[in-house]
Each structure stands twice: as structure tokens, then as C-alpha cells.
């Protein structure tokens, strides 16, 4: 499930529920459509309400990082916890994606 809002140059996308291969495909399409429409400087992914995520979610975030980079933009992640944070930490993604408190 996905909700979004705009603030300054940020497109803030809130992900909730479970992010696996099945839901990552939908999230990928929806986020790309939002990026194309609003052309944000930064994509902020709020994942505090995400209950589950596997490597499909990491692939989805890396893909959006590449999309944002093409227009000189960046990606940030906020609120990962528990099992979700464990996957983020293992991925090394925080080296390219800002981790917001």
C-alpha cells in the first residue's frame, strides 16, 4: 500500500504492509509515475509502517535511486525498524541513500 505527499522539493512516499516481489512491482510502477509527474528533487521513502521486506524491496529502492539520479535527484529512507531495518542494514544501501531519523 502506498500514500504520498509533496513538501518543498520532496516527494514523500509512505509504504506499509509487506514489500515483497509481488507488491514491489506495483510500488515500482506507482512511484515512477509520481516521479514523472512531480519531478521531485528528493524521493523520501517512509517505511516505519512496513511490516515485512525482502531483497525485492531493496531492488525496488536501488531502482528508484537510479531513476532519481538521472535527474540529479536523491533518495532518502525514514523509519525502518525491526526485520525491515535488518535487511536495509545488510544491503549497504545507506551508503547511497540517506537515512533520516
Amino acid at each position: 500500500m502506498l500514500a504520498y505527499r509533496l513538501r518543498g522539493g520532496d516527494l514523500i512516499v509512505t509504504l506499509s504492509g509487506e514489500l515483497d516481489q509481488l507488491s514491489a512491482d506495483g510500488a515500482r510502477r506507482e512511484v515512477d509515475a509520481l516521479i514523472a509527474e512531480y519531478r521531485p528533487r528528493r524521493l523520501v521513502l517512509e517505511v516505519g509502517h512496513l511490516e515485512f521486506m525482502d531483497s525485492s524491496g531493496i531492488g525496488m529502492v536501488i531502482g528508484r535511486y537510479k531513476v532519481m539520479r538521472r535527474s540529479g535527484g536523491s533518495v532518502a529512507v525514514r523509519g525502518a525498524r525491526g526485520a525491515v531495518e535488518k535487511v536495509f542494514a545488510l544491503s549497504g544501501l545507506y551508503e547511497i541513500v540517506e537515512r533520516l531519523a
Binding site: 515500482r28 525482502d54 531483497s55 531493496i58 531492488g59 525496488m60 536501488i62 535487511v87 545488510l90 544491503s91
Partner: peptide
Amino acid sequence: GERAGMGFLVMES
């Protein structure tokens, strides 16, 4: 495709 190549790393970790 858009894959992290992380599946086995997750399983092993």
C-alpha cells in the same frame, strides 16, 4: 532486471 542480488546473502546472514 532490477535485482539487488541479495537473496542468498539474506539467507546466509
